[in-house]
Simulated scan of single mutants.
Amino acid sequence: MAVKSLAILSLLKENDLFENELVIKRNEFLKVAGTIDTNIYFIEEGCLRIYILQEEEEQIIRFGYQNDLVVALDSFLTNESSDFYIQAIKKTSIKIISKKTFFDFINKKEENLKLWNSILENLVLQQMEREKDLLISSFSERYSRVLKRSPKLFQEIPHKYIANYLRMTPETLSRLKKS
Rank of each mutant, 00 (worst) to 15 (best):
F76D: 08
L125D: 07
I61R: 02
L69M: 10
N27I: 02
K95Q: 15
L123A: 14
E55D: 15
F102E: 04
Q126K: 13
W116I: 02
E58I: 13
E131D: 09
W116R: 03
S10A: 13
L125T: 07
V70G: 01
R26F: 01
F105C: 10
I50P: 00
N27Y: 07
E57T: 15
D74W: 05
E57A: 11
V23I: 15
A33K: 07
L123P: 03
I40V: 14
G64Q: 06
E80R: 15
D68R: 02
E14S: 08
K13P: 00
R49H: 05
D104S: 10
F102A: 06
Q87K: 13
R62P: 00
D37Y: 01
N79I: 04
S81H: 09
K91M: 11
V32D: 04
D83N: 13
S118H: 12
S82D: 13
V23Q: 09
R26D: 10
K13V: 06
N117I: 08
R62H: 09
L123T: 13
L9T: 13
E80C: 10
S98V: 06
Q126R: 11
I94W: 01
V124Q: 07
E55A: 15
E111M: 12
Q87L: 08
E121N: 10
I52W: 05
D68S: 08
F84T: 04
F18K: 02
I52F: 11
L12P: 06
K95R: 12
E56K: 15
A88F: 03
L113Q: 12
T35V: 06
N67W: 00
F63P: 02
E45N: 14
N15G: 04
Q66N: 10
E44S: 12
Y51G: 03
L73R: 06
N79G: 12
V23D: 05
M128G: 10
L17Q: 03
F102D: 06
Y41R: 07
E57C: 05
I36A: 09
R62E: 12
V23R: 11
F102K: 06
E131P: 00
I106H: 00
N15T: 08
I94K: 01
Q127K: 14
L11S: 13
E14A: 11
Y65V: 03
I89L: 11
V70Y: 01
S10W: 09
I40M: 12
E19M: 09
Y65L: 06
N27W: 00
K31V: 15
D37R: 03
